[in-house]
Nucleic acid binder design. Structure first.
Lengths: 343, 343
DNA sequence: CTGAAAGCGCTTACAG
DNA sequence: CTGAAAGCGCTTACAG
């Protein structure tokens, strides 16, 4: 922090002295109050500039109990999807005068607990949370009862009454599966995620619904759980192709998983889209650049982020209504899904 | 923030009353002081739990002028490289009890100025900055004179005396260029970045040095500047291939640029590695999964992040020595670079 | 081991 | 328009 020549921190009092006014006046100037004469304001602003004064928000919020800090807790910052989501959220807060405070939990509930505590200690105005896998209602009790505005993004938590912003996972997955069925596939796998994540339940649910509507059985060996990583995608392909009656296509929990599945297919000398069809979910930037370009369910990441930010802003401004926003999804048909080899 | 049944915020005083001690004692317990009897400590801890007390760090740091907040300003969070860097940094701070506060400037100096101001207002203990393109000495004056611990990461700023952590850009680029020369290439381009970024000067400098050492001319039309994006990589390929004597290989400023160049080659029906060679820089996770796998200069991202965090921690603990850390680089030979078509 | 008191840098009525 | 005063929730000597 800036210190005056005498070594102490530069405060409003120093500014007041330098400008020859009282500190109330300085405070008014800082808050852009119209009560202050232009002449006086300039003197104050000048003093601020020459002394290198920095407003102390901690002190201010101690007095008036308001902060411009918003917490944003991400379960996997290494997944480009969440980086994109974060950008959408940041953009809104920036223009609204709030500063988002991003932290990464890397799917660890322990790390998440630490991060949440830290953020609450810093008296954030609200929290946008992409819950780590394994988060339970009890983990968020303190936040809910404390009355902190909370928006759950991408995943909900059973029993937690908070606003949420998620893509329409069910519809997206059903549509993607229908598309694979239309192409002629009959044995379709679902890869990635765990049944204890709402996003997986919903996406896998859409997949099942489409199969059932087509009169097809849902084969348990075709649903492969695992972390939402490339490794899971690759391992699943190995596992699926060693089945007696292997699938001819797979819907992946997300694009990162699909990227891994695509790697494994290539390693086996199989042509994605021709020998085996792959559909992803999210439509991260990488998807269209992958080879072959990935057929995937686009979730409009940016607007999801903006919705989350706006929901948060509304709550901060005192609107206590809960709202579950379901984002539009659209199937992006590219080249990773085609007709099955031999029908 | 949690409120007591009567509606006011739960403070140390409430805890003191509930536990039947003074608030000094509560403060001591909170700080883990050994002065407090185990019995008393338990009573206090219990009261904290039942009342849902949350420590107010703003008030604490107002009193003792220390924070556990560390700012981390990233110039492009959408580039996976920086997400990886952030993870390395976070890891160290987490164990040291500091909480990093990530913000993204998206290469905008204006946005950067806003973010820096906000962070200073929140009285951060230190700042790790990946400067946005166009950052000048003057932009960091206030921070330097204010005595805020500052570590520059990935890019330095001319005239700014601060510790820095960067990969050995010059050596990495020279080595990569030498490798292309060894493969038989004689016309080699350099794609991406701007000459006003230290990282570009250094990488492009290594490229020039290698060419000169080989007695080859440095052709200005072979050096293409631009934002460090996929689009730049793609556009550069179009531009280079329309040259009278087009290059047979290119060193890209970073992997993201190389990804874009690879897209453009594919679109033209050219086989990367056979028809045209590409080398990247950074070795982001994506690089080895790209098709063909990208030959690139690995920079040991994680340890770069850790070095930055440790340098920061040292400064926070009062060590004022400046230190410029130059990270090791190693050429990862994969398949995107091969012998030129016809030599 | 524990309590009373001062003070960190602000904002907010309240007077003038 | 401006000033004096109280108080936000903590920590830190200082007594006891």
């Amino acid at each position: 922090m800036p210190r005056s020549p005498t070594g102490h921190r530069v405060t409003m009092i120093d500014i007041a002295e330098a400008a020859g006014v009282s500190k109330s006046t300085v405070s008014l100037v800082l808050q852009g109050s119209p009560l202050v004469k232009a002449d006086t304001r300039d003197k104050v602003l000048n003093a601020i500039d020459t002394l290198g004064y920095v407003y102390n928000r901690g002190a201010a919020s101690l007095r008036n109990a308001r902060t411009n800090l918003v917490g944003m807790v991400i379960n996997d910052l290494a997944n480009p999807f969440f980086a994109e989501l974060a950008v959408g959220i940041e953009r809104v807060f920036q223009t609204a005068g709030y500063i988002p405070f991003i932290a990464n939990t890397a799917e660890s509930p322990t790390r998440q607990a630490e991060v949440l505590r830290s953020m609450r200690e810093h008296d954030i105005a609200g929290l946008i949370l992409c819950p780590a896998r394994g988060t339970r209602q009890g983990d968020l009790d303190a936040i809910i009862t404390g009355g902190l505005p909370l928006v759950l993004a991408m995943r909900r938590v059973a029993g937690v009454k908070a606003s949420s912003v998620t893509p329409d996972n069910f519809r997206g997955a059903r549509r993607a599966t229908e598309y694979l069925l239309e192409l002629g596939h009959r044995r379709i796998a679902f890869i990635g995620g765990y049944a204890d994540m709402t996003a997986q339940t919903e996406r896998c649910g859409g997949y099942r619904a489409a199969l059932e509507a087509a009169g097809l059985p849902v084969d348990g060996t075709m649903v492969i759980e695992g972390p939402t990583t490339r490794e899971t995608g690759a391992a699943a392909i190995e596992q699926l192709l060693s089945l007696g009656a292997p699938p001819t296509a797979a819907l992946c929990f997300n694009d990162v998983v699909a990227l891994g599945a695509n790697d494994a297919l290539r390693r086996r000398g199989l042509a994605t889209g021709a020998d085996f069809s792959l559909v992803g979910f999210d439509d991260i930037r990488e998807a269209r650049h992958m080879w072959p370009p990935l057929t995937t369910v686009a979730v409009d990441t940016l607007s999801l982020g903006e919705k989350a930010a706006h929901a948060m802003l509304r709550m901060i401004h005192g609107d206590s209504r809960r709202d579950d926003y379901l984002g539009d999804v659209t199937l992006m048909m590219r080249d990773s899904a085609g007709h099955p080899k031999a029908v």
